[in-house]
Amino acid sequence: MWTWFHRLASPPSFYRFADRLAPWLLGLGLLLLAVGCYGGLFIAPADYQQGDAFRVIYVHVPAAALSLFVYVLMAVAGAIALVWRMKLAECAVVAAAPIGASFTALALVTGMLWGKPTWGAYWVWDARLTSELVLLFLYLGVIGLNQAYSDARTAARACAWLALVGVVNVPIVHYSVQWWNSLHQGSTILSLEAVRDPKISSSMLWPLLLTLSGSFAFFFAVWLRRLQNEVVARERGANWVRDCVLQAPLAAVSNEQSGMTGPELDPSMQSRQGRQRHGEPRGAD
């Protein structure tokens, strides 16, 4: 188990592993999402209180769950990156941040859409909403910090520090907002638990479980792909990238584009496979 883990951490073997796994995960995720959405939107009965508005939970709950899960994942990867100086973990931090931010934004938007018919307002300073908003800022901080450095490695390690401090901060924020909220006596805020907990009927539950697991599979598929890009961009000077990543698509494309000849890579070609950070040609290394 451990040696397998160790081998996986080397960029080339990870790349091949991700290449095999990602399509399956993506297919599985989309299938689960499709079935779950169909079940949620057409099969599950309308809520007797909220009517059809409750159906937003089939998007909202998975997005909210993932927004927290991805952050914890990022912090764990950050800790690994800082303690063992593992390149793959550094890539994992910066690859996860934009996906997590998207899920957080999705959770916020769907929450607001649900809030309008239910609470009568798009935004309420509810504890969950507020801490989700702060979480979005944490993600934006990581993304911004990653962009601010010209050197990918320094950027990723700075992001890892931020993710670590942030993960300590998330519960503090959550409790502080909860406490702050309870100070307003008598405000009529419906908590989300009230919707989720009470005797949710199985016809409503199974689509939710499907979209939830589908979202996780979808996240891992996207994350693996982003990780692959990140790894290739970092290792663009290495031999294995030349051999196993760039050769195949290069050959395919150079057949189509008659203008591109010779062994030297065009930078725009490279960014097809890996996001280019410095815009410098690979030969500079």
Partner: peptide
Amino acid sequence: LAVSRGDRT
């Protein structure tokens, strides 16, 4: 000994 500055060895 091998040392890198950022990504560059």
